[in-house]
């Protein structure tokens, strides 16, 4: 294999990290992938390269301003951006809050929550502001491919990455395009 290794970025925004667990679930196939790809920016490795990447695998939707800033940065940095998992595709479980206002959510948890002793809504400048709704990635940036599932099976990651490496159009087979 003389092709250059694909540079891959991964990130979890408003997600649970389950998709990253599934990515790791490729087990020994990572040995095979190690010849094809290199993780250059990911919570799974120590490096945080800002250089251009071939593929960005983004888990989770967008629930706060930091998520959106990061996503815009990833879109700039990556040639191909992939929405990974249900939350990245339709907001998923975090989007359950979309039927309530942000104020109602904050008050329910921090003012009226069970066992709250000093009711106050956190307002530290370090905390990212919550968005009005939880958004899927496609409502903020162009998404090139999607891996459905909660999480997508390890096989789906493998099918996608190896197809992109080989220059083939990724195509998920039936059992790898499930929504749950």
């Amino acid at each position: 294999m003389s092709k250059a290794k694909l540079k891959i970025l991964t990130s979890s925004l408003a997600g649970c990290f389950g998709c990253h667990m599934s990515l790791l679930d490729m087990d020994e196939r990572w040995l095979e992938l190690a010849d094809l790809v290199e993780l250059v920016r990911s919570p799974l490795v120590d490096t945080r390269s800002q250089s251009r990447c071939d593929i960005g695998l983004i888990e989770g939707g967008l629930c706060n301003e930091e998520n959106i800033h990061l996503l815009l940065e990833f879109r700039e940095q990556c040639k191909i951006l992939v929405a990974v998992g249900a939350c990245a595709i339709n907001g998923g479980v975090p989007a359950l809050r979309n039927r309530y206002s942000v104020a109602d959510c904050l008050e329910a948890v921090y003012l009226h929550g069970l066992n709250v002793t000093q009711p106050q809504i956190p307002s530290d400048a370090e905390l990212p502001l919550l968005t009005d709704k939880v958004y899927p990635l496609q409502e903020w940036v162009k998404v090139d491919y999607s891996l459905p599932g909660c999480p997508p099976p390890a096989d789906a990651f493998f099918q996608l990455i190896s197809a992109l490496h080989d220059g083939r159009e990724p195509d998920l087979n039936y059992v790898n395009r499930h929504f749950d």
Binding site: I89, A95, N98, K133, P136, Q138, S146, P148, L172, R177
Partner: peptide, 19 residues
């Protein structure tokens, strides 16, 4: 609905969600 989406190889929702 889900099975029909699978049958049609739908992998994402494409349109803006109304929630």
């Amino acid at each position: 609905l889900q099975a029909t989406a699978y049958e049609l190889n739908m992998q994402e929702d494409h349109f803006q969600h109304l929630y």
